[in-house]
Amino acid sequence: VGDQVLEIVPSNEEQIKNLLQLEAQEHLQLDFWKSPTTPGETAHVRVPFVNVQAVKVFLESQGIAYSIMIED
């Protein structure tokens, strides 16, 4: 199991704000291929294997929908 690319769908401005804060966490080494800008629009982010669980827990705790787009 390696890195994953998640497709994330924020449903409101609050969730977009939370994702932008997540993007700013440099220690997570997230690679946003497509940043969140509009509710209902997908964002794509590559998550290093060591941080996959932490990111998924965060998304679930914020009620942000996501799916695994690419499993490496």
Rank of each mutant, 00 (worst) to 15 (best):
1 V>L: 09
1 V>N: 14
58 F>G: 01
21 Q>R: 10
31 D>Q: 15
17 K>F: 09
49 F>Y: 11
49 F>R: 07
11 S>C: 14
29 Q>W: 06
20 L>D: 03
70 I>L: 11
17 K>S: 08
11 S>L: 11
14 E>K: 08
31 D>N: 12
26 E>W: 13
44 H>V: 15
52 V>Y: 08
3 D>M: 15
17 K>M: 09
56 K>L: 14
21 Q>D: 13
72 D>N: 13
26 E>V: 10
46 R>L: 11
63 G>M: 06
6 L>C: 02
55 V>I: 07
27 H>L: 09
13 E>F: 11
5 V>Y: 11
62 Q>N: 14
7 E>M: 13
57 V>F: 13
25 Q>T: 11
48 P>E: 03
66 Y>L: 01
56 K>T: 09
10 P>Y: 04
28 L>F: 10
52 V>G: 03
30 L>A: 03
47 V>H: 00
50 V>A: 13
61 S>V: 07
25 Q>K: 11
2 G>N: 11
30 L>I: 10
61 S>G: 07
49 F>E: 12
17 K>Q: 13
16 I>C: 09
2 G>C: 15
11 S>A: 13
24 A>Y: 09
68 I>Y: 05
51 N>C: 08
38 T>H: 07
24 A>E: 09
49 F>C: 14
51 N>H: 14
26 E>Q: 12
41 E>I: 07
13 E>R: 07
55 V>W: 01
5 V>E: 05
1 V>C: 15
44 H>M: 15
36 P>Y: 02
12 N>F: 02
46 R>Y: 11
67 S>H: 05
36 P>E: 03
4 Q>M: 14
25 Q>F: 12
68 I>W: 04
10 P>A: 06
4 Q>R: 06
49 F>W: 11
69 M>Q: 06
12 N>T: 14
70 I>R: 05
31 D>R: 12
39 P>K: 04
58 F>A: 04
15 Q>I: 02
66 Y>Q: 00
40 G>T: 03
38 T>V: 13
10 P>M: 04
9 V>P: 00
72 D>Y: 15
54 A>M: 10
38 T>L: 10
19 L>H: 00
37 T>Q: 07
71 E>H: 07
67 S>K: 13
72 D>I: 15
20 L>T: 05
7 E>F: 09
42 T>C: 10
37 T>F: 08
52 V>S: 05
41 E>K: 05
46 R>D: 02
72 D>V: 14
72 D>E: 14
33 W>H: 08
4 Q>P: 07
48 P>Y: 03
55 V>D: 00
19 L>E: 01
14 E>Q: 08
30 L>Q: 01
57 V>I: 12
56 K>A: 06
14 E>R: 07
45 V>W: 02
8 I>V: 09
69 M>A: 06
51 N>F: 13
7 E>D: 04
13 E>T: 07
16 I>P: 00
52 V>E: 03
64 I>L: 04
39 P>N: 03
66 Y>H: 03
39 P>Q: 04
58 F>P: 00
45 V>P: 01
58 F>Q: 03
36 P>G: 04
22 L>C: 04
5 V>Q: 04
51 N>P: 01
26 E>N: 12
5 V>G: 03
50 V>I: 12
63 G>P: 00
22 L>Y: 06
53 Q>A: 12
39 P>D: 02
57 V>G: 10
9 V>T: 15
66 Y>G: 01
46 R>F: 11
21 Q>N: 11
20 L>W: 09
51 N>K: 07
31 D>I: 14
14 E>A: 09
4 Q>H: 08
10 P>R: 01
7 E>Y: 10
72 D>R: 07
55 V>K: 00
27 H>W: 12
36 P>N: 02
21 Q>W: 15
26 E>F: 15
32 F>C: 03
16 I>E: 01
63 G>Y: 04
17 K>G: 06
59 L>T: 00
55 V>Q: 00
61 S>D: 08
13 E>M: 15
30 L>N: 01
68 I>E: 06
40 G>M: 06
72 D>S: 14
22 L>T: 02
46 R>G: 03
61 S>Y: 06
4 Q>K: 06
29 Q>G: 13
65 A>Y: 11
28 L>D: 02
42 T>H: 09
36 P>S: 05
6 L>M: 06
33 W>F: 15
69 M>V: 11
63 G>Q: 07
7 E>S: 14
50 V>F: 09
41 E>R: 05
70 I>C: 15
66 Y>R: 01
50 V>N: 11
7 E>P: 00
